[in-house]
Amino acid sequence: MSQVSGSANNTKRQSTFFTRFKKNYIGWIFILLSVLGIGLFYFYPMVQAFLLSLKSGMGANLEYVGFDNYARLFGDPTFITSLTNTFIYLLVQVPVMIILALFFSVLLNDPKLKFRGFFRTAIFLPAVTSLVAYAVIFKYLFGNDGLVNELLLGMNLIDTPLNWLSDPFLAKITIIIAITWRWTGYNMIFYLSALQNVDKSMYEAARIDGASSIQQFFFITIPMLKPIILFTSIVSTIGTLQLFDEVMNITNGGPGNSTLSISMYIYNLSFEYTPDFGYAATVSYVIVILVVILSFIQFRVAGDRD
């Protein structure tokens, strides 16, 4: 070891040149495999999908139509419904979930808390539950004579059972509750693991200065976790824009398309109706464009430069 560290004693200029060269060259080696893999398994199919979006027709009978599919989007009421629904989910659900996940992770990070492992697992469990079970449970809870209605009736909050799954507005609420239930624990993991990388001494110093735990949360935890908060909000945005499982399994897009998401519409165009893969690819690219715009905004807001 001492032999090698001798080379670090060269003049400063040399070492800077050396590190800069190394930084570039070695860095590329670290990322090479990923660039190749993503190129092959994602970008190559993505280019194909884009070419497909310039065609239209049923199944294998595709014809080149240029950008007609993109024009068709604007006059397609089902697409517009699915877009509106997806944005409602996004605006309501993502902030609520991120805040809840942060709250739980800070709470469950307390080393003095007993049965931490149990509580963490309990909150994480919804994320691993099989979709089939998840759907059955939600339909049961939110059915007309389900537990939720019984509870609300019992507390005298409502007079007649609410149609959670067959009322257009309430069905959206049900979907939002379902997504939040399933994915809060998932996001909690990212925060929990990141919290371990926050230097404990910062909290001690703050405590000595007399900062309350709420102040510590806002002035230490949140700034320290900023990279991860950015990560989870982008990932959740993408996840919600591609929302499919919950809608498919709990409401099947109904009642009357009122819970239909963009991804579910893509599924319907490809598999449920007579397939039009060209138009389905076009709708997919709408998601790509939306995510690019939203992620750009999120990166900007988070000030990624630091």
Binding site: G27, W28, I31, S34, V35, I38, F41, Y42, F43, Y44, P45, M46, Q48, A49, L52, V235, I238, Q242, F244, S263, I266, Y267, S270, F277, A280, A281, S284, Y285, I287, V288, V291, V292, S295
Partner: peptide, 23 residues
């Protein structure tokens, strides 16, 4: 590398159903 990274991020944004058939 930052540029490459941003391009790689794009691959998260397409719904899998859209690239399934070419794949």
């Amino acid at each position: 590398k930052d540029m490459v990274f941003n391009i790689l991020l794009l691959s998260m944004m397409i719904p899998f159903a859209a690239i399934m058939i070419p794949l």
